[in-house]
Amino acid sequence: MIKLLLTAFFALFVLFLYGPMLAIFTLSLQGPDGALTFPVRSFGFYWLGQVFQEQRVGSFVESFQRSLWLGLAVVAIAIIVSVMASMAFRARFKGSLALFYLTISSLVVPGVLISLGIGITFQVLDIQTNWFSSGLGAHLTWTVPFAFLIMLGVFNRFNPYYEEAARDLGAGEVRTFQEVVLPLILPSLIGIALLGFTLSYDEFIRTSLVSGQYNTLPLEIFGMTTNVTSPALYALGTLTTLFSVTMIAVGFGAYKSLSRQ
């Protein structure tokens, strides 16, 4: 009986999570006479095509490219930095606890403070804010902690005998890392890459005040919510959501197949 109730509750919860999404998916697949509300008037791909037309309020394609490059840069930096730091954490060193708490606080500080802080800093130092400078920094405060915490977990379960064996066989530090450590942590790195990318790709609050002249995709979409009153908005939502989900699916698949090897 209780199990039945819980199953029903879970089903409702999943409906709550996905219902709204399905609504805009459906509404974005309309013909030219489509509107922002149900019922669906006609079926078609008109609005999906409209997304790629020049929008009156800005360009979706350019902001998508910016978000893509930013995400890639963020992922590259987050991986390098967090792998280094988590390797440092395998030995005891002074200040490790401080760095640990610093990383956690980066995660739990309200995002608007990061945005405001970086914005003010650039203002005071008289530097122009830009998506690839101040925006990049803001994204790192959100992605690096995730990457770092995952890597800590990975190295917690990591067997140091593999490295010792490699060293006993005469491999240097670099070679041990390249040929022993790296292949073993690779599946996790792919997981982090995809995770970090989607976190960055969808980040809004921390970027909102520091992206400078050119918007990232979420900022562009936020701007459109006040200007665009056609299903093109839903179509854009559908496309970018599909993109995120594809990235996650690919990442999860790669993680699965690599860790099985």
């Binding site: 996905y18 999404m21 969808d202 809004f204 979420p218 939502g237 970018t240 995120s244 989900v245 996650i248």
Partner: peptide
């Protein structure tokens, strides 16, 4: 859903 855009 957590991996998709908050705004959307």
């Amino acid at each position: 859903p957590f991996w998709t855009s908050n705004i959307i």
